[in-house]
């Protein structure tokens, strides 16, 4: 952040009326906020109403935006030649991300839908990574149990899958 630059805050208002103030630059991680501000709205005291996202979920999204904005600002201030430090910072941020997103699936789902709504690509990607991580190395029935998905295949469909996919992979070690 350049010295002397005025600090501009924006307010995001959740569907249940909770307000969250954050630096505009942090909020700009969201494509939706970016577009709103670009057309000259959202800077007023009323803030930007975020529909379909509750305060509990929005608070998590705000934490993510603040962390990633701070990390990006710190990286800008670093010596450009110090590659080792950059890699270490990146690794540290990734560790923070993984800890941040280590959530129950209901919360994870809410954050994924919210991030998608707000157009925060990094957070969408992180949530998708976490969902994928929950599925890795599991059989179809184990995934169903883990994610609480009902088995909606008919016996005919199941037979068809077995017929269509004779190239079945099984783990040996």
């Amino acid at each position: 952040m350049a010295a002397g630059k005025p600090v501009v805050m924006v307010t995001l208002v959740s569907s249940d009326g909770q307000s969250f103030q954050l630096l505009e630059e942090a909020a700009l991680l969201s494509a939706m906020v970016r577009d709103t501000i670009q057309i000259g709205q959202g800077r007023g005291p009323a803030g930007i109403p975020i529909r379909n996202i509750t305060g509990q979920t929005l608070s998590m999204v705000v934490v993510y935006c603040n962390k990633h904005y701070t990390a990006a600002a710190a990286a800008d201030g670093d010596d450009a030649a110090d590659e080792e430090k950059k890699v270490a910072n990146k690794k540290q941020l990734r560790e923070w991300d993984e800890q941040f997103i280590n959530l129950e699936q209901d919360k994870l789902y809410d954050i994924l839908v919210a991030a998608n709504n707000l157009g925060i690509d990094g957070l969408v990607d992180l949530c998708c990574w976490r969902f994928a991580d929950m599925m890795k190395g599991k059989s179809a029935s184990e995934i169903r149990v883990k994610l609480g998905i009902r088995d909606d295949f008919t016996s005919e469909q199941r037979a068809q899958i077995e017929k269509d996919s004779p190239w079945v992979w099984s783990r040996t070690t």
Partner: peptide, 13 residues
């Protein structure tokens, strides 16, 4: 996007 993060065997399942 979730699929993109899955290794091949999980992708097939």
């Amino acid at each position: 996007s979730v699929l993109d993060h899955l290794p091949v065997p999980d992708h097939l399942r």
